[in-house]
Each structure stands twice: as C-alpha cells, then as structure tokens.
Amino acid sequence: MTEQQGQPAEPEKKEKKSLSLNVVSNKKHKGFGAGTIDLSAVSCVIIDGGVAYIDDGAMHAKSKVERGIKFTPNKEDTPNGRKCWIVWTAVERGEEGSYYAGATACEMWIDTEARRGWKILADHVNKLDAAIKRKYKLEELDGEEKAAYRKLLIEHNEEWWNNSPEELKEALA
C-alpha cells in the first residue's frame, strides 16, 4: 500500500464479470464465460385450453400456470390435470429481418385445485436447447393448439411470421 500525502492508496477495483448460462461443448475452453449462450432471444409461450400467450416466467418455472404448483415426474400423481404446453420460441435476425427461428413444444399437466402438476424437466431442458439450436418440434401439438400458437405468432409480429421458414408454417398448418 502506498501513501500519498498521508492517505492510503485505494485498492484497485476489479471489473465484475457477468456469467451467462454455460453450455458444455467439445470446443476448447478459452477463458471466463467461454461457451455461454444468450437466452434473450428466446421467449416462452404457454398454450392452455386452446389459448396461447407469452409468459416469460416459464423460463424459471414461474409462469402463470406453474406458480404454486408442486411438480412430480409421475403423471399418475396428477389424475385431474389439464394439458398445457410451454413452447420455447427463438427469434433471430436474418438478411430479410427478424423471424421465428426455432420452436419446440413441451407438455405438462396442471391440476390448479390440487396444486399438483406433471412435467419432465429433462424434456423441457432438451427442447429449450433444440429451440436455441433453431429447430422446430411441434408435432405433439393438436390442431387447436397449433392454430392458437400460429395466431399468437402472427398477431405478435406478422413481419416475423412472413420472414419465417416454410418448415415452421407447414408444422403449424
């Protein structure tokens, strides 16, 4: 510690590093934060009773339908549940503008009265990863659910819908 005019020198302030979600890969680690991904381009859509709405609380299992629910990996523990979906939706910017670049649907069952629910966390994580990797996995949705999701995407941003690949439009036809 050096002193100038009777005052101790201030300690050097270190710059704080932010940490994002790390994804394991086969690439060599190249320092702090290497392999991190940005989830800011992913939104969560809930489909419940044929209605789709954006609820980014689902990213942390705190969507409107999930709050106050104790989840179990045993489907039989939620015999009176209703089927709901989280659709991980990734947006990317291309030459023509932004578009819906990835979308994957994850099933869950919710019994609001009993405050019980069923979902497979590993499935949710894997499907979030697939959406981030710009894949579409929507085949499990029924016709009403696909229509609700398609309607939401178009109403949210029709330009993004128009810029989206035919693969997404066909998956929701």
Rank of each mutant, 00 (worst) to 15 (best):
M1K: 08
P8D: 14
A9N: 11
A9Q: 14
K13C: 05
K13Q: 15
K14T: 07
K16W: 09
S18K: 12
L19V: 12
L19T: 12
V23P: 01
V23G: 09
V24N: 12
S25K: 07
S25N: 13
F32Q: 10
G33V: 04
G35M: 09
T36W: 13
V45G: 02
V45D: 01
I46V: 15
D48R: 03
G49R: 00
G49I: 00
G50E: 00
A52C: 00
I54N: 00
D56I: 00
G57W: 00
A58R: 03
A58F: 02
A61H: 12
A61L: 14
S63V: 00
V65C: 01
V65P: 01
P73C: 03
E76P: 00
P79S: 03
P79T: 05
N80Q: 09
R82L: 11
R82Q: 15
K83M: 09
W85M: 07
V87C: 06
T89H: 02
V91L: 11
E92P: 00
R93I: 14
G94R: 11
E95G: 07
E96M: 11
G97M: 04
S98F: 11
Y100L: 11
Y100S: 05
G102Q: 06
G102F: 03
A103I: 05
T104Y: 11
C106H: 09
C106K: 02
E107I: 04
M108L: 15
E113S: 10
R116C: 03
G117M: 01
I120G: 05
A122S: 14
A122M: 12
D123K: 06
V125S: 15
K127I: 04
D129L: 13
D129E: 09
I132A: 12
I132L: 15
K133S: 13
K135W: 01
K135F: 03
Y136Q: 08
K137E: 13
L138T: 04
L138W: 02
G143D: 14
G143L: 09
E144I: 13
E145P: 07
E145W: 10
K146H: 09
A148C: 08
L152I: 01
L153C: 02
I154A: 03
E158M: 01
E159R: 14
E159D: 13
W160M: 08
W161K: 05
N163D: 06
N163K: 08
S164Y: 07
S164R: 08
E166Y: 08
L172A: 09
L172R: 06
L172H: 07
A173G: 13
